[in-house]
Nucleic acid binder design. Sequence first.
DNA 1: CATGAAAGATACAGGGT
DNA 2: ACCCTGTATCTTTCATG
Lengths: 148, 148
Amino acid sequence: MDDRDWELLRHLQADARLSFSELSRRVHLSPPAVAERVRRLEETGVIRGYHAHVDLARAGWTVVALIRMSCYGPRCVLRDPEVREWPEVFEIHRITGDACCVLKVAATSMEGFERLIDRLAPYGRPSSTMVLSTPVAWRPVVPPPSGP
Amino acid sequence: MDDRDWELLRHLQADARLSFSELSRRVHLSPPAVAERVRRLEETGVIRGYHAHVDLARAGWTVVALIRMSCYGPRCVLRDPEVREWPEVFEIHRITGDACCVLKVAATSMEGFERLIDRLAPYGRPSSTMVLSTPVAWRPVVPPPSGP
DNA sequence: CATGAAAGATACAGGGT
DNA sequence: ACCCTGTATCTTTCATG
């Protein structure tokens, strides 16, 4: 991971559809050299994928919430592979503290959100926080500071 | 937004670097037709961008946390355009409840995390929850259910 | 939307430092 | 290990129907 790799990451995070040719111009390397570096970043797992970022609201998912789940031991959300397939569930983070995990979820209406809560309730006690807006939805990963 | 648009979104969310030609084969349309549909999805804001997804840990940001900020009125995090430029801050959500917003942040060490908390403290009382792991980091947006 | 041709990009070889 | 040039093949773009 040298400076050139970070430059490539910077550009691919801002626009994942940039061609190797365009990247090669921006980092002053030949297209094959760029292609090989990018392949290496993919294979070492630094790049986990390339995703089109779809606006939830414009796609019809107007209600967004964060749900802290206090799960009932063996019936935990983290232990059921089905929950992570529900289309309303977009992120699951295991966390420290008295709760077990946080879900980022969406619904098409408050009614749909209520039904989602009902489906989660068997796993544990859900504590919901509605997301009013998302001033920062995404920021690129930059090189970590080298010094202390 | 017809079925073909949703098919395109499905593929572009799974792999944002797919060529228009490859997409055209998958949705059974000509490449120019695909290109025009994708441009329309971009211009109407359904597609907000294409991002390479970088693994935080592999990039050196080993400590991840969610911070609920209870801000001091005018000194709120949401009102300061600087905070959203800090490299440690990856998401900001305005929320309901007694807190003002939730930040998803990362640091390269606990020491670095402590310093970040110190920098946030002037804006309000931070309540930190460490992220132990992220079983679901990302899921594609699918068409919302049509019926009630 | 589809077709077709020109311009551009990729992939893969081979060779250099 | 890393990079560059060559060329054949694929892709994008734009005009046209």
